[in-house]
């Protein structure tokens, strides 16, 4: 008998055990591993797809952003260059304006300086003239300047024209009866008693009064009357001072200054970097030049004899 029934039964059981064991140890783990791997690969592929899509999106976004950025940059650059151009023009204008202002200011300062220098010069010149004249007179005539001035004044007063004398007298007479207003004699210096008496008697004599007739005199020291004497009555005035000499002196100085300023402005226009300091230097130099010339001017002024030219003037 080829079939042994016990063996058949045993083999059935064996086979079922084998099937169960293989299912347990072979098929299930292998299939699970394959499934896991496939899932893993699928997820990796899906991930890669997703990433690729994302990358594409990002690339597009980036390209778009780049384009926008480029456009913005171009716009901004243009805008900036335009702004810079405008700003540059504005700043240049401003600087030009400022430089113009500065030039005007400089010119003004120069002019002021010139004026003040002129003032100082005339002041000093008058003092110098006064001193020199006084010294010269003292040395030569042994008489003080004041005495000389008084003498000159009196001489002038005597030699004024008859019409002027009449006008002055009229003015004085009009003044006298109404009120006892004194005849004002202004001098730049203090008169001695003798000089006062001399002036009084001379005026009285000239105006046709007696010596005994009482006329009120008022002697006033006035610094504005530069080294001179001035008699005023009711609008009429007889005066003599060295201001005439000073005026001519001032004219001479003015001419020198004008020529200096002209040279200076030429130098300024030639060189750009000319500063206020250098111009001050120039003015100092010109001052020196002026003070050098001063003596000459003053000498000229003294040389032109006071008596010859006559410094008095009668004004109405």
């Amino acid at each position: 008998m080829l079939i042994d029934w016990f063996t058949v039964l045993a083999q059935v059981i064996n086979f079922l055990i084998l099937a169960w064991l293989l299912k347990r140890f072979l098929y299930r783990p292998i299939l699970n591993a394959i499934d896991a791997r496939e899932k893993r690969i699928a997820s990796a592929l899906a991930n890669a797809d997703k990433k690729s899509v994302e990358a594409e999106q990002q690339r597009n976004e980036f390209v778009h952003k780049n384009a926008v950025f480029d456009a913005q940059q171009t716009t901004r650059t243009n805008q900036l260059s335009a702004e810079v151009k405008t700003e540059r023009a504005r700043l240049l204008d401003e600087v030009r304006q400022q430089s113009d202002d500065l030039r005007v200011k400089l010119q003004l300062a120069l002019k002021n300086e010139q004026l003040s220098l002129q003032d100082a010069l005339s002041q000093r010149a008058s003092e110098e003239v006064f001193n020199i004249v006084r010294k010269v007179l003292n040395d030569l005539a042994e008489a003080s300047l004041e005495e000389q001035i008084v003498l000159v004044f009196l001489q002038r007063f005597q030699t004024i024209s008859a019409e002027e004398k009449a006008a002055f007298k009229l003015a004085f007479q009009q003044l006298m009866p109404t009120n006892k207003t004194p005849l004002v004699v202004r001098t730049g210096f203090t008169l001695t008693e003798e000089q006062r008496a001399l002036i009084e008697s001379m005026i009285k004599h000239t105006l046709g009064y007696d010596d005994n007739e009482a006329i009120a005199f008022e002697f006033v020291i006035d610094s504005t009357v530069v080294s001179g004497i001035e008699i005023s009555a009711n609008g009429q005035k007889v005066a003599w001072s060295i201001s005439d000499y000073l005026t001519s002196l001032a004219k001479g100085v003015d001419q020198i200054l004008q020529s200096l300023v002209h040279v200076e402005s030429q130098a300024q226009s030639n060189s750009e970097g000319n500063s206020l300091e250098s111009s001050l230097d120039h003015s100092q130099i010109s001052e020196k030049a002026i003070s050098k010339n001063e003596t000459t001017v003053i000498t000229e002024a003294t040389a032109s004899n006071m008596i010859d030219r006559g410094g008095d003037e009668t004004r109405s």
Binding site: L18, L21, F25, L26, I30, N32, A33, R37, R40
Partner: peptide, 16 residues
């Protein structure tokens, strides 16, 4: 069959 299966599937890899 079972022993070889057990040995091999004891440390299965799910990697590539």
């Amino acid at each position: 069959l079972v022993l070889s299966s057990m040995l091999i599937t004891r440390k299965l890899s799910t990697n590539l």
